[in-house]
Lab assay of single mutants.
Amino acid sequence: EDYYQILGVPRNASQKEIKKAYYQLAKKYHPDTNKDDPKAKEKFSQLAEAYEVLSDEVKRKQYDA
């Protein structure tokens, strides 16, 4: 799945936009606030993985290549 789609940001998003999108979605899908939703944990880990790659310039360049 596309990391940009997961975070809901365009491919040319700035680091600030990526961070903002991640924090909004992380708050929304955090397992502690969605105890009754088994998919929230999965969504949250996808968000974390996408953010880890896109927030790191080197990893992001490799991902975009």
Score class of each variant (00 low, 15 high):
2 D>G: 07
2 D>M: 04
2 D>I: 04
2 D>E: 06
3 Y>Q: 01
3 Y>W: 05
4 Y>S: 00
4 Y>C: 01
5 Q>G: 12
5 Q>S: 14
5 Q>N: 11
5 Q>L: 11
5 Q>I: 10
6 I>G: 01
6 I>K: 05
6 I>T: 08
7 L>H: 01
7 L>M: 11
8 G>H: 10
9 V>W: 00
9 V>Q: 02
10 P>C: 09
10 P>K: 12
10 P>T: 12
10 P>Q: 12
10 P>A: 13
11 R>Y: 07
12 N>L: 10
12 N>P: 03
12 N>I: 07
12 N>R: 11
13 A>P: 01
13 A>N: 00
13 A>W: 01
14 S>Y: 04
14 S>T: 11
15 Q>A: 13
15 Q>D: 11
15 Q>W: 05
16 K>G: 12
16 K>S: 15
16 K>Q: 15
17 E>L: 08
17 E>F: 06
17 E>N: 07
18 I>C: 02
18 I>H: 00
18 I>W: 01
19 K>R: 11
20 K>A: 15
20 K>D: 15
20 K>Q: 11
20 K>I: 14
20 K>W: 14
21 A>Y: 03
22 Y>T: 01
22 Y>D: 00
22 Y>P: 00
22 Y>E: 00
22 Y>S: 01
23 Y>E: 15
23 Y>V: 15
23 Y>Q: 14
23 Y>A: 14
24 Q>H: 13
24 Q>I: 14
24 Q>G: 11
24 Q>E: 14
24 Q>T: 15
24 Q>R: 15
25 L>D: 02
25 L>M: 12
25 L>Y: 04
25 L>V: 04
26 A>P: 01
26 A>S: 12
26 A>Y: 15
27 K>N: 13
27 K>R: 11
27 K>T: 12
28 K>R: 10
28 K>P: 05
29 Y>S: 04
29 Y>G: 03
31 P>R: 04
31 P>W: 07
31 P>Y: 10
32 D>W: 03
33 T>R: 08
33 T>Q: 13
34 N>Y: 05
34 N>L: 14
34 N>R: 02
34 N>Q: 09
34 N>V: 11
35 K>R: 13
35 K>C: 08
36 D>N: 08
36 D>F: 06
36 D>R: 04
36 D>I: 04
37 D>Q: 03
38 P>N: 10
39 K>L: 14
40 A>Q: 07
40 A>C: 08
40 A>H: 06
40 A>P: 04
40 A>I: 15
41 K>H: 13
41 K>R: 13
42 E>W: 11
42 E>T: 04
42 E>K: 07
43 K>D: 04
43 K>L: 12
44 F>Q: 04
44 F>V: 05
44 F>I: 05
44 F>L: 07
44 F>H: 05
45 S>P: 03
46 Q>V: 11
46 Q>G: 05
46 Q>T: 08
46 Q>I: 09
47 L>A: 07
47 L>D: 00
48 A>W: 12
48 A>Y: 12
48 A>V: 14
48 A>D: 05
48 A>L: 14
49 E>D: 11
49 E>Y: 08
49 E>P: 04
50 A>K: 01
50 A>Y: 02
52 E>C: 09
53 V>C: 08
53 V>M: 05
53 V>D: 01
53 V>I: 10
55 S>M: 06
56 D>R: 01
56 D>F: 01
57 E>A: 10
57 E>Q: 07
58 V>E: 15
58 V>H: 12
58 V>R: 13
59 K>M: 05
60 R>S: 02
61 K>S: 11
61 K>A: 14
61 K>M: 08
62 Q>N: 11
62 Q>F: 08
62 Q>E: 14
62 Q>G: 07
62 Q>W: 09
62 Q>I: 12
62 Q>M: 09
62 Q>K: 10
63 Y>Q: 02
63 Y>D: 02
63 Y>P: 02
64 D>Y: 02
64 D>M: 03
64 D>P: 02
64 D>E: 04
64 D>T: 03
65 A>Y: 06
65 A>R: 05
65 A>S: 12
